[in-house]
Simulated assay, not measured.
Amino acid sequence: MGLLERLRKEWFIVGIILVIAAAKLEPTIGGKGGPLKPEITITYIAVSAIFFNSGLSLKTEELTNALMHVKLHLFVQLFTLVFFPTAIWVFLQVLSLTPINEWLLKGLQTVSCMPPPVSSAVILTKAVGGNEAAAIFNSAFGSFLGFAV
């Protein structure tokens, strides 16, 4: 497999690396109040566009079939909202024995309890050819559970 063919296959990862490099070189472009206006474009436009695009690409049967995978949804929700926070809590107990700042540890604990962003879950699942309908359902449902609790 040639380099160009590999880059075409891994276009999403290459794009992420390029965007991170560009952000490192000129962080003010994507900063709050910058020319990209992320407080508006990301919050409202990008997330809406991802859901709209995902919704257009899904067939009704796919969504219905995805909703019937109860074991999958139970596994994803338990892994995301129970196992992962518990594993991170255990890891943070070990890290608390080191001289790491306690506020960093509290921040890591908080982030570990949050559901993954809906847009990221959908985009990454689509990029690897996964079950996009299940990703949409679990992301939305996990976010709902996070707000409800």
Rank of each mutant, 00 (worst) to 15 (best):
L3G: 09
E5L: 13
R6E: 12
L7G: 02
R8M: 08
K9S: 10
F12Q: 05
I13V: 15
V14M: 11
V19T: 15
A22I: 05
A23G: 11
L25Q: 07
T28V: 07
G31L: 00
K32R: 10
K32T: 06
K32M: 07
G34A: 00
L36Y: 04
T43E: 11
Y44F: 11
I45G: 00
I45R: 02
A46L: 15
I50G: 01
F52A: 12
N53D: 08
S54M: 13
L58D: 02
K59A: 11
T64D: 11
T64P: 02
N65G: 13
A66F: 10
M68A: 15
M68R: 15
V70C: 07
V70G: 07
H73N: 06
L74Q: 11
V76F: 05
L78V: 12
V82Q: 07
F83K: 03
F83E: 07
F84P: 05
F84W: 13
T86E: 03
W89M: 11
V90C: 14
F91K: 02
V94H: 03
S96N: 03
L97D: 02
W103C: 01
L104R: 03
T110P: 00
V111I: 13
S112F: 10
M114Y: 00
M114P: 00
P115S: 05
P116M: 09
P116E: 01
A121W: 03
V122T: 10
I123H: 05
I123T: 13
L124W: 07
K126W: 09
A127H: 09
G130P: 05
N138Y: 05
A140F: 14
G142M: 10
L145W: 09
G146F: 14
G146W: 08
F147D: 01
